[in-house]
């Protein structure tokens, strides 16, 4: 029996058994079992519209970058899924399944309608601002900050909000205030369009962000600039 043949089928046949939960342009996300635990598998499938060698290079780099950012966040005490295994042949990342969690997006919608909702949401906004400031202090740029990419852990003690950041697929390392400003701008756009009438809530998030880091005021200043011109820097001149 040719070993190489057996190997080629290994991960694909494993994924065929797993349950696909999301398909995007860049990757497919599955839920499965790994070493006895429930895991999330993110598979960056080959893009046939790219030249194979370019595709391989890009995919490998993005997989590595995603894993690096997660580790960097965790080192700084920012909760992100634990990486269990990385397969660079099939570009699969095996991640901790964050059980008993709800996305911030799904959390906000019903809570917004309730009477005591405002207070809950303010505490949450404070926490998000604080964590993003910490993340930017580590020079991690998430790249795709949305309320769907933040999970809230349901814990017995309701006082402590436990926030987990997920999907570092577009993340990178940068110390530039420009990049951090754009990161917040992307969140602002996503936040306000997903959750109507939350301008004051988002302001509160930014205030908390500002108060949580020495470098934050410069980022907020940059954010004001970015708001005027949009995400892309002017390339004129």
């Amino acid at each position: 029996m040719e070993e190489a043949d057996v190997l080629r089928k290994q991960v694909p046949s494993y994924l065929a058994e797993a349950q696909m939960i999301k398909q995007g342009a860049e990757a497919r996300v599955y839920r499965g079992r790994f070493l006895g635990r429930s895991v999330i598998i993110k598979e960056r499938f080959p893009k046939l519209y790219r030249h194979p060698s370019v595709d391989e290079k890009l995919t490998r780099r993005r997989t590595a970058q995603e894993v690096r950012s997660i580790l960097r966040c965790r080192r700084a005490g920012i909760n992100a899924p634990v990486v269990y295994f990385v397969d660079y042949n099939y570009h699969c990342i095996f991640l901790e399944d964050i059980v008993h969690s709800v996305s911030v997006r799904d959390y906000i919608v019903p809570v917004q309608a309730t009477v005591q909702g405002t207070e809950h949401l303010q505490t949450l906004a404070d926490k998000i601002g604080e964590i993003l400031a910490q993340m930017h202090d580590e020079d991690v740029i998430h790249g795709d900050l949305t309320t769907s990419n933040m999970l809230l852990l349901a814990k017995a003690e309701h006082k402590n909000i436990n926030l987990v950041l997920i999907d570092f697929g577009l993340s990178y390392i940068s110390a530039l205030t420009e990049d951090k400003g754009v990161d917040l701008y992307v969140l602002e756009k996503a936040f306000l369009s997903t959750h109507p009438n939350t301008e004051t809530l988002f302001d509160r998030l930014l205030k908390s962000y500002t108060a949580s880091s020495k470098k934050a005021p410069a980022v907020i200043k940059k954010l004001d600039e970015v708001r005027l011109r949009g995400r892309k820097r002017s390339m004129v001149g």
Binding site: A64, V67, R68, I70, L71, R74, R75, A76, G77, I78, N79, A80, V82, V83, Y84, F85, V86, F94, E96
Partner: peptide, 25 residues
């Protein structure tokens, strides 16, 4: 493993994460 990291998970989490990512980190 700094005390900071243990705020967001167990020692096992920290160890496993490093083992899995050591070729790129």
């Amino acid at each position: 493993v700094a005390p900071m990291e243990e705020r967001c998970g167990s020692l096992l989490d920290a160890v496993v994460c490093r083992m899995a990512t050591k070729d790129v980190a």
